[in-house]
Amino acid sequence: MMNHSLILIIIMLLSYGLGSITGAYYIVKMLTGKDIRVVGSGNVGATNAGRVSGKKGFLLTLLIDAGKVILALSFTSIVMKGEAYLILSSIFVLVGHLFPFQLGFHGGKGIVAYLASALFLCPLSIVVFAIVMGGVYIIIRKYTLSGFLSMGTIPIAAYVIEGSFTLSAGLVALFVIVVVFHNRSFHHSVET
């Protein structure tokens, strides 16, 4: 039987490694031969993959980016029981997605990784997110703002549905990381 610390290290490394599999980079390279980091918006995410390589590129990127989260969390749920381990795994997948080692630590913005984590941890929170997103978009007609306001409901919905402070706090942490990184990327792209 492996000791607890070794299992934690394996979870963190595996989660980071899976997170580093940047779907947009590989799909765009495969479909167009281009480096997504220097075309479109330069972002290594599903939206830019769709912009550069069409609907097929967008959907394949979504599948890869959601799939790596589900794979990491499934592995974690098999080797360790408890929400805290799943949150730890989610954070390391997200960090891998944001800072993939093989792409010089220049990754996506983490939205799909956050939503896939929420889907795994509390599937009904994604239903709430989708309903709120639809309602908010109808009112304000701004896609990105509607998305971020709606993503903020996920930790609240998870707490109401699951009654778990650990789960809700973990989803808050993931959401804050995504917001901070998205905001930093936005300001960086405006300045450069």
Rank of each mutant, 00 (worst) to 15 (best):
V178M: 02
H106F: 14
V178H: 03
F58H: 07
G17T: 10
F129R: 01
M30V: 11
S125Y: 03
V69N: 03
Y159L: 14
M12Y: 02
F75E: 08
A158Q: 01
H188W: 04
G57P: 04
S168D: 00
V93E: 07
G54C: 10
G42H: 04
G33L: 10
V39T: 14
L14K: 02
A72E: 06
L98Y: 09
L167Q: 09
M151W: 06
Y26R: 09
I126V: 15
L71K: 04
T32D: 12
F129Q: 06
H106R: 15
I7A: 04
L8T: 13
L18I: 00
S77I: 07
F129E: 11
A46I: 05
S185L: 13
S164H: 02
M80H: 03
T76Y: 02
P155Q: 08
V172P: 02
V160M: 12
T61S: 09
N183W: 12
S77F: 10
I27T: 12
R37Y: 08
H188M: 12
L103D: 11
R141G: 02
Y137V: 02
L121A: 12
K142A: 12
F99Q: 04
A72Y: 03
L171T: 00
L31H: 09
V136S: 08
G50Q: 13
A49F: 11
S168V: 08
L8P: 02
S41V: 11
I87N: 07
N183H: 14
G50D: 12
I111D: 05
G17E: 10
M12N: 10
P155K: 13
G40P: 05
V180G: 06
S125I: 09
G67A: 11
I131F: 10
